[in-house]
Amino acid sequence: MKTVAAASEDVFEGVKISGIRTKEELTTALLSIVPGDLTVNDVVFFCVGTDRSTGDSLGPFVGTYLNGLGYGNVIGTIDDPVHAMNMTEKIALLPAGKTVIAIDASLGAAPSVGSLSVYNGSIKPGAGVNKSDLPYVGDYSVSGVVNVCGYQELLVLQNTRLTVVIKMAKDITSALIEVFPLVPTPPTAPASGTLRSAAKEVFA
Rank of each mutant, 00 (worst) to 15 (best):
P125R: 10
S143E: 07
G126I: 00
T22E: 03
T194S: 12
P81G: 01
G76K: 02
L93A: 03
A189Y: 07
F45M: 08
D10M: 01
G144T: 15
A198I: 02
Y71M: 06
A6E: 03
L30A: 04
A191Y: 07
P190W: 15
M87K: 10
V113T: 09
E178V: 10
Y136R: 02
S18F: 06
V165Q: 03
S112Y: 07
L107V: 00
T50S: 15
V202D: 04
G19W: 12
V74K: 03
F61L: 08
D79Q: 06
G72K: 04
D104Q: 12
G55Y: 03
I123Q: 09
L69H: 03
D80W: 02
S122Y: 08
A6W: 02
D42F: 02
S174G: 05
A6Y: 09
G126W: 02
G36L: 12
L134E: 08
M168F: 12
D139M: 02
L154S: 14
N67A: 01
L157S: 04
S117W: 11
A102S: 15
Y151T: 12
F45C: 12
Y151A: 11
C47G: 10
Q158C: 13
V15K: 01
N67V: 00
I20M: 13
L94E: 05
V137E: 11
N86G: 03
S115Q: 15
V62A: 05
K124A: 06
A92N: 05
N147V: 07
M87T: 08
D139I: 01
G126H: 07
L38I: 08
D133S: 14
A109S: 13
S192L: 02
T194V: 15
I101G: 11
L93M: 11
V15M: 02
L134K: 14
D80L: 00
V156T: 15
I78H: 00
L93P: 00
T194A: 11
G70P: 01
T173Y: 05
I75L: 11
G36P: 03
E153A: 09
Y71E: 06
F46E: 11
D79E: 10
T3K: 12
V129C: 09
A191G: 15
G14E: 02
A110C: 02
T39S: 15
Q158V: 10
T77M: 04
V100R: 14
P35R: 07
K131N: 06
C149S: 13
V11Y: 09
L154D: 13
I103N: 08
S115V: 08
G138W: 03
Y65R: 04
K2H: 09
S57E: 08
F203I: 01
V48T: 14
S117G: 14
T27E: 11
A29Y: 01
L31F: 01
K23E: 05
P35E: 00
H83F: 08
P111V: 01
E178K: 14
A96H: 07
D51M: 10
L182M: 10
K131D: 05
T88D: 12
L116H: 07
G59N: 14
R21E: 15
G144Y: 13
T188E: 11
S57L: 12
A102V: 13
V11K: 09
G126Q: 04
K131E: 09
S18N: 11
T54C: 15
T77I: 02
G19D: 05
S141R: 12
L30I: 05
